[in-house]
Simulated scan of single mutants.
Amino acid sequence: MTYTFRQAFRIAEGNRIGHEGPELVLREGPAGRVAIKPQTADRAVQQEDRFALRGEGYKTEDEAREDGERWISALALGFVAQLVPADFETRRPQGHFAHSLLNQLNTEATGTAKLYHDQTGLLVVPEDPTPMWGRLEAQSEAIRNAAAMADAVRRAYDEGLRPDERTMLAIDLNSAAENVAGDADARFLMLMFAVEAMIEVKQRSNAQIAVLDELSKHLIGLTDVDPSDRSEVVGALARLRNESIGAAGRRLAASLAPRLYGGRSAVDFFRYAYGIRSKLVHGNVGERRPAVEVVRELHGPMLWFVRDLILARGGANWPHPLDVVAQA
């Protein structure tokens, strides 16, 4: 029995791999065969944006898995080198075949092929019977209330509201978040960037600055400390003259009190969301990435949080839709 590995991925919209054949062979020899194949049958490589990295002819499951992991790393780096990022979709919502349906389909098959659920990540299966892959997907559309949208636009115009540059940047980032809606992490981070665009850092109090200045003077006078180390620490103290992004963000979030987001006060919600953001972007080596379910649960509250901050900063002091519903 021999084994095959498969890793599904897609390339960014607007990109194509310039190859007219049905597959792009990466390596072929006695040790096995590795190729990039379109996920849609009977299509040329350059016609597709969704692919499968396939390796065939491995003697053992462990051998297939080990080489598959190596090829996935190579593909990721190779594509980046050519400015074509590959999305392995490990954090995207997945369609799912019920096990009963999958078993029924395989029972009714002729035995020459076997259907597997097309999950994300590296998949290793026997080559006999011939593996086939299937997934269920659904797309949704939100039909917005045209009358309410028109009323909001007219009201903003009549009140002469003109968002400043920071608020306009937040609006752009908020809109861009929906362009990456399929990836929970990217969407969440884009919404957090929208929040950060509206954060204005202020200088600390005079009393706090006085303490920092005394510490700097003391360090400068320590002649037994290496000058470069001393200079670096003094520079760090100088940067502390301004409040942290976290503190400034909590101050911004406090303007939304007493509203709740995801069951938390606005300040606590910002603190929690900012912590998730830090773990995603600045996670220490060995620290576990936040589970995708945790990130997805933040999406709804984050939409309202960003919306409310943008409107408050833009001067739109209007009744909140949720308050109107609650009163009704």
Rank of each mutant, 00 (worst) to 15 (best):
212 L>W: 00
99 H>D: 14
286 G>E: 10
136 L>Q: 09
16 R>H: 09
103 N>D: 12
324 V>N: 06
302 M>A: 01
35 A>E: 07
137 E>P: 00
144 R>Y: 12
24 L>I: 09
303 L>K: 13
250 R>T: 07
187 R>L: 03
211 V>Q: 04
55 G>K: 08
48 E>M: 10
108 E>H: 08
120 T>G: 04
155 R>V: 01
321 P>I: 12
61 E>Q: 10
44 A>Q: 04
156 A>R: 14
266 A>Q: 01
32 G>P: 12
156 A>Y: 02
327 Q>A: 15
226 D>Q: 03
59 K>N: 11
217 K>C: 00
316 A>V: 00
219 L>I: 11
26 L>C: 02
98 A>F: 10
202 K>R: 12
151 D>K: 10
197 A>Y: 07
129 P>D: 07
271 R>H: 11
67 D>M: 10
9 F>E: 01
219 L>R: 05
104 Q>N: 13
194 A>D: 07
27 R>M: 11
106 N>Y: 05
58 Y>F: 15
261 Y>K: 06
146 A>W: 09
210 A>S: 10
190 M>S: 05
104 Q>L: 10
21 G>I: 07
326 A>S: 14
35 A>Y: 02
304 W>N: 04
79 F>C: 12
55 G>T: 07
81 A>Y: 05
245 I>Y: 09
212 L>G: 00
100 S>D: 15
281 V>E: 03
155 R>H: 05
276 I>Q: 09
176 A>F: 15
222 L>Q: 13
240 L>A: 09
159 E>M: 14
110 T>D: 15
269 F>I: 02
192 M>V: 14
152 A>L: 07
159 E>V: 01
107 T>V: 06
16 R>Q: 14
159 E>Q: 11
239 R>C: 08
244 S>C: 06
321 P>D: 14
59 K>I: 05
16 R>K: 08
278 S>N: 15
189 L>A: 03
27 R>G: 04
200 E>D: 08
81 A>G: 09
98 A>D: 13
